[in-house]
Computed example of a mutant assay.
Amino acid sequence: MDFRSDTVTKPTQAMRTAMADAIVGDDVYGDDPTVNDLEQWAAQRHGFEAALFTTSGTQANLLGLMAHCQRGDEYLCGQQAHNYRYEAGGAAVLGSIQPQPIENNPDGTLDFDKLKAAIKPDDSHFARTRLLSLENTINGKVLPLDYLAQARQFVDTHGLQLHLDGARVYNAAVALNVDVIEIAKHFDSMTVCLSKGLSAPIGSLLLGDKAFIDRARRIRKMLGGGMRQAGILAAAGKLALTEQVAQLSVDHANAKTLAEGLSQIDGFHVNAEFVQTNIVFVKVDDDIDTQQLASKLAQDGITITPGNPLRFVTHKDVDANAITTLLAKINEFVA
């Protein structure tokens, strides 16, 4: 049982079969029919003109930032944004794009007054502010639809583009009980990760208009992201979007159950009402050694990441019985 992340999910048997049977070609030449099918289908499904299959969410975000911004430009994002904190500074290192982070509100949103104040004037002393990048979900929190509408109005008013890091955008759609297009329609570009809760073994999509995706495809090649018989991977990616979305509601329910159970354990502090999707953060008392806890759980075949707060992530490979077992083992440790 692995609660570190939903990136640890294994592909389904249907995915393994589809990968084995995939019709393939050379994707750099544009000859892989399975990749082409995924890209065309995904673009239409999410309301965009075009899509690009990439190796990872990190690559998809980097391509998006570099396709929107030139060297010396700037993008606005959250202080907790994955493409600012956890993607090795790629926008700055490889794109010469300056990030301007803004502190996230407790619900994951960004304050529009603070964003407005961060936009640079048209002056040669400053980087040119070109883009606002949001993330949904962010730390398991869902950005409300009315907030997304306000973000669209904000960028239109200030002449910016709007990008979505949609690593878990389907979790957001399921939590809001809306079609994903209700989120996607507000953005000029977005990414969709196929290899988290949706369970594909690898890959993310970048979506936008045709000219944007053409630029991104060129940059993907420049960064070594051109793939050959990638249809083997794309076959699993399409099943992720067509067969695995329903699983996310189960993951959310399991996360709520886990949060409720942890809140009953001495020294563990979590408000289950704040758990919206599949990620649970838990503060623990200082006298609880989370490294020892992780070591003890490992002896029982349970993997977590030590720290304070602890982060638990539910997914298809940890079912309700796994939640019950984890809670029992943590209770034993505390006792």
Rank of each mutant, 00 (worst) to 15 (best):
D6R: 10
K10F: 09
T17Q: 14
D31K: 14
D32Q: 11
T34N: 12
V35M: 02
D37L: 05
A42W: 13
R45H: 15
G47E: 12
F53K: 02
F53D: 00
A67Y: 03
G90D: 08
L94E: 01
L94T: 01
S96W: 06
Q100F: 12
P101V: 05
N105G: 08
D111K: 09
D111L: 09
D111V: 15
F112Q: 10
P121F: 07
D122L: 09
F126L: 00
L132N: 08
N139V: 13
G140Y: 03
P144N: 14
L148G: 03
A149V: 06
A149M: 06
R152D: 02
H163P: 00
G166V: 15
G166M: 05
Y170L: 11
V174G: 04
V174C: 07
I183S: 03
M190R: 13
L223C: 04
R228G: 05
K238N: 02
V245R: 13
A246L: 06
H252G: 07
N254A: 14
A255M: 10
D266H: 14
D266Q: 12
V282A: 07
V284A: 01
L293D: 05
S295G: 00
K296D: 00
D300Q: 12
N308K: 09
R311V: 11
D317P: 03
N321W: 03
L326V: 15
K329C: 10
F333D: 04
A335L: 07
